[in-house]
Nucleic acid binder design. Structure first.
Lengths: 237, 237
DNA sequence: CGGCGGCTTGATCGGTCTCAAGTACGGTGG
DNA sequence: CCACCGTACTTGAGACCGATCAAGCCGCCG
């Protein structure tokens, strides 16, 4: 017999409240980190906007009129499933581009994880630019390809055990923030859980277990020190 | 304490043996299904190749020199994980394009699910064509975008229950083969399991349960009749 | 008829979820 | 400076879903 799984309703208090705010446009910013045509063009085309912690940058189903690049802070993109759970699509750190869509509307929502500044570029101007400049067009294509790879990696992650997912997550974050072996996580345990397809309790327990096995140190809840990368790498297979 | 999960080794008999064969090049084929520039150009640029059931079309880490389009039959792309499990990246049915990569090498392997004919296009010629023809370039971009969407959908699938995954899979296949309510599955239970991140037993049991609940009929193991789409849709949320 | 591969079914195990407290931390006001 | 609060996180106990291990069944082909 087929018993439809009862799905517990999500305690709304577990999700950080969305702050609806009017972001302040600040001045045009120069982003000097990279040397590609795209990185050079973007600051010239858009404005920097500031969003406070938990502010919505765009919502699912809104017109995808802009492309975004994180200047400082961090961003999560996510989708609320019909059963109330939240699936996080990705975390975006300084330098990352997000909001690239292939339809008229965003398929995910985006929120600032902390006080965040993003560079906002009108999609139409970027498309016009890409039409004239093959290098830009190629870069957008490559960007999409990288995004596709990243999402394919996630699929491999989601069929693994909790420990493998958490270990992978830590190594991924360590690689991205590039801060030696100490990571300052910009996101909550709930965010991590919703990213990895686990519950907050499982994430917490797994971190505790990793700490007990001397693979990591967790001096404060948002700070993770990788003590034994070899052990972590062995866990992810 | 952290106990590293012991992973059972996969019974190799569970995986269909890969047939290494020399595919036969047949004649150039005309593919008249679509009216896009890409669909029109492809048959003119490539040759049709035939692969017997379970033959490898390309392997992971091989140079990604060609792009493929299924003419008849069906194809699975997959990756063998370090623990021996197999994750299927996707199933490709007639009309589908696969093998599009953004690096020099394939990240997945591809095999024929049944005797299959594919149109093979040299990547370099396609790129040359795209450089000259903006419509082709745009189509490749759109193709990538669609692929990205598809993979993002998979992520949402993989965090759901077994029943939701199987129901989604059936509805997806029904939509793709477009054959009313009866689906002739080109893949085995093991393929489905590896696609959905479940075991073969769970897939089998779930299908039995769906049949018991009158949502589907399974006259033969490869044939599924959707009896109650509403029920299936309700399951996927 | 025998054997084999693919599939189904049964029994048990174990990892993650669920439900429920308990603890640490940062901010606010007295 | 401390008392209080709310939020985030951790920890514990038990339930449940899907994995695992192990037979059976079925269709097909020699």
């Amino acid at each position: 017999m087929l018993a439809v799984t009862p799905i517990r309703s999500v305690d709304p208090r577990r999700l950080a409240p969305t702050v609806r705010s009017i972001p302040q446009a600040t001045s045009r910013a120069f982003d000097g980190a990279e040397h590609s045509s795209l990185a050079q063009s973007m600051p010239l085309m858009g404005a920097t906007m500031a969003y406070p912690r938990n502010a919505e940058i765009y919502g699912e189903n809104e017109a995808a009129e802009y492309l975004y690049k994180v200047v400082s802070g961090a961003v999560r993109t996510y989708k609320i499933l019909s059963d109330g759970r939240r699936q996080i699509g990705g975390f975006h750190l300084p330098g990352d581009i997000f909001g690239l869509e292939f339809a008229d509307e965003h398929t995910l929502s985006a929120e600032a994880l902390s006080d965040t500044k993003v560079l906002v570029i009108k999609r139409s101007s970027l498309e016009a630019l890409a039409a004239r400049d093959a290098a830009i067009a190629h870069e957008l294509f490559a960007l999409t390809g990288r995004e596709l790879r990243r999402v394919q990696e996630r699929i491999l992650l989601l069929v693994k055990t909790a420990q493998e997912r958490v270990a992978s997550f830590l190594l991924e974050m360590a690689a991205r923030v590039a801060g030696a072996n100490a990571i300052e996580l910009p996101m909550s345990r709930q965010d991590i859980a919703d990213y990895l397809g686990l519950t907050i309790e499982t994430v917490s327990r797994t971190l505790t277990a990793l700490e007990a096995s001397a693979a990591i140190d967790v001096p404060t809840s948002r700070r993770i020190v990788l003590r034994n990368r070899g052990a972590l790498n062995r866990m992810i297979g």
